[in-house]
Every structure is written in structure tokens, then in C-alpha cells.
Nucleic acid binder design. Structure first.
Lengths: 240, 240
DNA sequence: GATGGTAGAGATCATTCTGATAATAAATTA
DNA sequence: TAATTTATTATCAGAATGATCTCTACCATC
């Protein structure tokens, strides 16, 4: 049996506050994945700017403020530490081990995002030395941030299986080879060209453009583009 | 652009605390689903025992204490309000709208569980008037608890699609008809008998017993039992 | 004791999906 | 011209799926 099972229940209201002494800080940590064809799947990190562990690499994190919910806090924190705006962040999991932060009891709500690195090339600020690292090799992180990243990577593979996820990571126009290489990076494998093409086409989410990409082949590969309408309705209806 | 995006970042450490004034309460709310062949899918609720909204129906909720993480808090709270022990609780989502609790800023981490009602028939205490309600019609709940239940029901359908979930809801020995009726309840549909049997057998998770259930048929239906070893390894390997 | 009802347990069949492999197409280079 | 590279399409066998039907055991009733 767990040790705290006999701890007291919260007591009744006094005035306009609950009688409860334990008020932890609530933090948000953002795990942002990007993709680059040269270096593969990438993870965005910043240098921590406060003690303890000042100067070490960490996820983009901050504390929940008054008058904002967690989604808003995640947006704000990511913006203040990296300059990125309009990132689609999704709640991942709460990390709440009682001494995960040595300074003070802090629980952390993690958020994940997938972004196209090159869309933010010029937007990312240098203030906190935000930098991309390959997901296969990045520095040791503070606190339990390593565990957070491990969990997020698992979740990414899992979701990519079910959702036609990952378009966020590519340029607006892309070839099948580019798309397949992205999936290869996520799964750390090599998918079959023909079958991958058939599978992706079967979703009906791709629109073939007239132009071809001649950079990586002599024949030239058609550019494709996401049918954003179908894509959003598909994502939204997924839970039905 | 969101309104709080220019709010301050957390400041540096002073002594052994972060300089941050906003310390919300952290609550846990448990959404427990049960199943009964007579009445279908059920939801466990308790009468709220403190103001405001005292006496109204609510999810089993409480506040996070020192020296416990959220998983432990969820176990403790569920035990103190219902008497249930050893329930497999899973984190669902954090609800954090800044005025979701009128008394004081409180964020709530929700947990879900699936249990076999009849395993807890005698364990559930009367102290907080815990009661089962059909998921199709239960009383209006306090705060944002209705929204929490809605979200949990969606999630349940979604997961039942992918995982061979739901065995928690049945007695240890069950017939195919019982199992199918449970899935019918979750999906609010009528699945085909033959195909359902074939599908479930294909998972290799069921063991046929020698005995038959004669209550609902003259011929008698074989009892089946979950191969718990295979089941747990399957669940654990799902994220790989 | 023949008939029909009921619920369990399988069988069958057409369709689709999937993985693997091969064939074709278009351009470049040796 | 032949070889090479990458893109694209075709083919084929096996698995999975949905719909429908058959068969079995038992009971009730005429």
C-alpha cells in the first residue's frame, strides 16, 4: 500500500480560500521537435538562465502565472525564450515527483510541438542561446528533463503511427522522398518507397503540384502539398 | 496573439525559494468508469462535502500534498472518498482555466480508471455517498467536471479501438457475449457476433476455460479468462 | 418425437490492406 | 549507346475485415 494513503483530506473553506498549506509551483516545459534533411530529427534546447544549474542545457520552461491557463503559459514561455509564435503545442504529461526540483516543490506540465525548423530560422532569438540538437545526441539536461524528452520521443513514434502527423516538420511543398525520409528519421528505420507512397496517397491528404523538384534527381520528383482542409478535419474528427 | 505573452519570466532564486508569487492549488479529480450488464457503462460520483457547491455531485477530488506525487495523490484521494484500493489510474489531462474554481486558483489533474463494479460492491464506503450513475445520464456536476467526463468518454472510445482494453470492467471469467455487450456499451453500437469473436481470439489474449455459463443460454457459453501475462506485456510494449 | 426457438460457435466469400519485389519511365553521365 | 540514378507504377501473395450463412446444443411446446 502506498505511504500517503492515510494523509488528511482537504478541509473546508475559510473566507475566500481553501485551508490547504501545500501550494507547489506549477511549471511548464516545452519539448519542441524540428526536422532538417541534413541532420534529421532535432530537439530545441536553451541555456538555463537561473540558479541552480545555471548555464546548463534545458527544455524551455517557466512558471504558470495568474490569469492564464496552461496552454497560454506554454505559448508565452516558448515565445519569451525562443521568439517562436503560433506554435501548435499539445499537453503531454505532468511530472510531479516531490523532489524533481531541488529548490522547491514544483510540478511540471510538459507540452510538445513539431515545427519546421526553416520557418523559424530567423525568428529564434539568441537571448537564451536556443539551439537545435539531434534527438539522437544532445547534452545532458537538468532535473528530469531527460526523462521528459524520452517520453516525448516515444509519444511521437506512437502518434505518427496513427495520425498523418509530421507535415508540420516539412516545407510547404515537399516530395515523397522528403516525406519518407522524415518518417525514416522518426522511426529510425527505412520504409519501402512504393508502399509508403501508396499509403500516403490513400489518405487523400496530398495534392500533387505541377512543378517538380530537380535538385536531388535528374528525372525530377513532383512536389506535393498538404490538403490543409482535409487534414484539419481529419485531426479534429479523430477522437470520434 | 495571446494576451499574457508579455508577462514576466520567472526571476532568479532567493535563498531556497523561487521568487514567484503565483502558487495555485493543485487538485486531482478521478473519473472512474465501471460496467454492469444490466445498466451498461457507469460513472462513479460522490457528494461534495465542502463549500461551495456542498452537497452537489462531483468527481472524486482532492488536493496534492507534500511528499507525494500526483499518482500517489490520486490513489489516496480515491481511497479516502470511496474506499477503493489498488485501482489502476491513468493521467488524462490538466484542466487549468484560471477561474474554473470560484474560490481560489486551482488547476486540476484528471485521472481515469476502469474497474469491475462488482469487485468493489462491498469495498465502497458510504461516507461520501459514492454512487454509480449511467454514463448516458448522470446529474449535473460542479465546476468543469462535466467537461472532464466528456473528455474522458471520448478518450475511452479512442483507446478501446487500439488497446484490448476493458477487461478490467468484467468479472474474472466471462463469456464472449458479455465481452461483446461491454464493447457495444462503450461504442454505443452493435458489433457482429462472429467477427467480434474472431477478432478477439486473434489477439491471443483469451484462454478458454472448461466450464460453461448456462444462465443466458441453454447450450451454455464457454467462460473465458484473460491471459494476464500476455496482456500486460502487450500493454507495456504498445509504445514501442 | 417432431418442430421450432434461441444462443453459441464456426464457416465461407468477396473485398480491401499490406509487405515484398519487380517493372517502367525520364533524365544524366560514362 | 549503354549504364546509372531516382521517381513512379504494377504485380502478387498473404493477412485482415465485413457481411452473411450454417451448424450445434439445448429447451419448450404442440
Amino acid at each position: 500500500m502506498i505511504s500517503t494513503i492515510n494523509a488528511p483530506l482537504p478541509t473546508v473553506v475559510s473566507g475566500s480560500q481553501y485551508k490547504h498549506t501545500h501550494r507547489p509551483l506549477v511549471a511548464i516545459d516545452c519539448i519542441v521537435f524540428g526536422y532538417d534533411e541534413e541532420v534529421g530529427l532535432q530537439l530545441l534546447l536553451v541555456k538555463r538562465h537561473l540558479d541552480p544549474e545555471k548555464g546548463r542545457w534545458a527544455l524551455m520552461g517557466g512558471l504558470l502565472d495568474d490569469n492564464e491557463n496552461l496552454d497560454q503559459a506554454a505559448q508565452r514561455i516558448l515565445y519569451r525564450l525562443t521568439g517562436m509564435t503560433n506554435v501548435y503545442l499539445e499537453e503531454l504529461k505532468v511530472f510531479s515527483h516531490s523532489d524533481r526540483d531541488p529548490v522547491e516543490r514544483t510540478i511540471s506540465v510538459t507540452y510538445t510541438a513539431l515545427v519546421n525548423i526553416h520557418n523559424y530560422e530567423h525568428q529564434i532569438t539568441d537571448e537564451f542561446e536556443a539551439r537545435w540538437f539531434p534527438t539522437s545526441s544532445f547534452p545532458e539536461l537538468i532535473f528530469d528533463h531527460n526523462e521528459m524528452v524520452r517520453f516525448a520521443k516515444q509519444q511521437l513514434k506512437y502518434k505518427a503511427n496513427l495520425h498523418p502527423i509530421g507535415f508540420e516538420l516539412l516545407p510547404e511543398r515537399f516530395t515523397f522522398t522528403q516525406l519518407r525520409k522524415l518518417y525514416d528519421a522518426i522511426y529510425e528505420t527505412q520504409l519501402d518507397k512504393g508502399n509508403f507512397r501508396r499509403m500516403m496517397l490513400a489518405t487523400g491528404l496530398l495534392v500533387r503540384l505541377k512543378e517538380k523538384d530537380k535538385t536531388s534527381s535528374k528525372k525530377g520528383a513532383y512536389f506535393y502539398q498538404l490538403d490543409t482542409d482535409k487534414y484539419t478535419t481529419k485531426l479534429n474528427n479523430f477522437y470520434l
